[in-house]
């Protein structure tokens, strides 16, 4: 059978049309995860014992079970609870919820690296808790955790490929479709792999640009 590089290029136009699906789902999920993860972290800082215990259980579940199963639960399982979602919506729900917990864990890990004095200075100036979070804590937290957050974003992006399994017509799914119609399954997958690498590179570059910007603030 062999490997025909032309078959890879032949599959590219259709694959590239699907790249936008992955990128869009990833971006929406990442933004939701950042928002959710941030709110979750603030909620945890209130130190309400029951709330934190519940969050800890969910955290353990999300980290202890495969993302694929979480996707299945969102798509196949939720209808049993009366919530029927489209494959894309279920995918976004699973990815962003999963990632929100990881984001919260990343942020929490870096909280103690913010100096006490930063908070004390803000408090002494009479800032209320909300601006202390929004002006002092969170901006520093995002700067400190940027490399880890970018890494998490690439994890989400890679996670979008799993949505092929619940029939979202994204890059991998299109590659499979091309494969079954041409009887050359390998080459389109190679094409998909190349495109995922490229998308990853775009994300990492975006992160690098941000990091460069923040680096200027330091000595």
């Amino acid at each position: 059978m062999g490997f025909e590089i032309d078959a890879v290029w032949g599959a590219m136009p259709r694959l590239m049309n699907a790249v936008g699906v992955n990128f869009r789902i990833a971006m929406i999920s990442i933004l939701l995860a950042l928002l959710g993860g941030t709110l979750l972290t603030i909620l945890r800082s209130f130190k309400i014992r029951i709330v934190n215990a519940v969050i800890a259980v969910f955290m353990s579940f999300v980290r202890g079970t495969p993302l694929l199963i979480q996707i299945f639960l969102a798509y196949y399982g939720l209808p049993a609870l009366g919530l029927r979602l489209s494959p894309q919506a279920a995918g976004i729900l699973a990815l962003s919820l999963n990632s929100a917990f990881f984001v919260s864990e990343i942020l929490r890990g870096s909280l103690p690296s913010i100096e006490d004095g930063q908070i004390e200075a803000a408090t002494a100036l009479g800032l209320r808790p909300r601006p202390i979070w929004s002006k002092v804590v969170l901006p520093q937290l995002f700067r400190k955790t940027l490399p880890m957050l970018i890494n998490e974003a690439t994890v989400v992006l890679k996670g979008t490929a799993l949505l092929a399994v619940i029939t979202v017509v994204e890059t991998l799914r299109v590659a499979q479709q091309i494969g079954s119609s041409t009887f050359r399954p390998f080459e389109p997958i190679v094409g998909a792999a190349i495109l995922f690498l490229a998308m990853n590179l775009v994300l990492v570059t975006i992160g690098w640009v941000f990091e460069r910007r923040f680096a200027k603030e330091r000595r």
């Binding site: 991998l172 190679v190 690498l197």
Partner: peptide, 19 residues
């Protein structure tokens, strides 16, 4: 850089492609 599921298919279809 490549999603694991894509790696799985690469190996799954790649080995037969090379006999």
């Amino acid at each position: 850089g490549i999603p694991f599921i894509v790696i799985v298919f690469l190996v799954h279809f790649g080995l037969p492609a090379f006999g």
